[in-house]
């Protein structure tokens, strides 16, 4: 008999593969697959299909006294609205660096967080901001201005009443 001639197997030797029965292997693989699909599915969960954010469109009446070229900040909005001879335009006042709200100053805007400065047309004058302040979509009917914070227009777009 051939088995007699083999040396006795020690507990320290690796076990032959057949002992790893299909049950063990298949449960390992199904667990791997379940983990993969489960994690892939869970990664979708934190990203809601509809974001819980208020409407970005709002209407506001410019004050009668607003001087030409002076910024008007609608209450509770991070937007600056201007009126001059060419029409009305609006700039977002959310700093393009890290999202602080910029204040107006004589030259344009300044950001309190890391000192970015913007010119009156939104161009970056200095500091770390990588992009100019975006111009927002505006429409005017009568004295009422409608501004959409979610839509940008090319810089220089002004709307006549």
């Amino acid at each position: 008999m051939t088995t007699k001639s083999q040396p006795p197997r020690s507990r320290l030797d690796p076990e032959p593969l057949p002992r790893r029965d299909w049950l063990g292997l298949s449960s390992l693989w199904t667990m791997g697959a379940a983990l993969l699909f489960g994690v892939a599915g869970m990664l979708k969960l934190p990203k809601a299909a509809v974001l819980a954010s208020p409407s970005k469109k709002f209407r506001v009446a410019l004050p009668e006294t607003l001087a030409l070229g002076e910024a008007f900040i609608p209450p509770g909005r991070a937007v600056a609205v201007f009126k001059d001879a060419d029409g009305v335009h609006a700039l977002s006042t959310i700093c393009t660096h890290l999202g602080c709200v910029v204040k107006t100053n004589p030259e344009g805007f300044e950001c309190p967080c890391h000192g970015s400065r913007f010119k009156a047309d939104g161009e970056v004058a200095r500091g770390p901001a990588p992009q100019p302040l975006p111009w927002l979509k505006v429409s005017v009917s009568g004295g009422v201005v409608t501004i959409d914070e979610g839509a940008t227009v090319p810089a220089g777009t002004k709307v006549q009443a």
Partner: peptide, 9 residues
């Protein structure tokens, strides 16, 4: 207050 950053933040 989402409209007025702490300065300095």
């Amino acid at each position: 207050n989402p409209n007025v950053p702490e300065n300095p933040a």
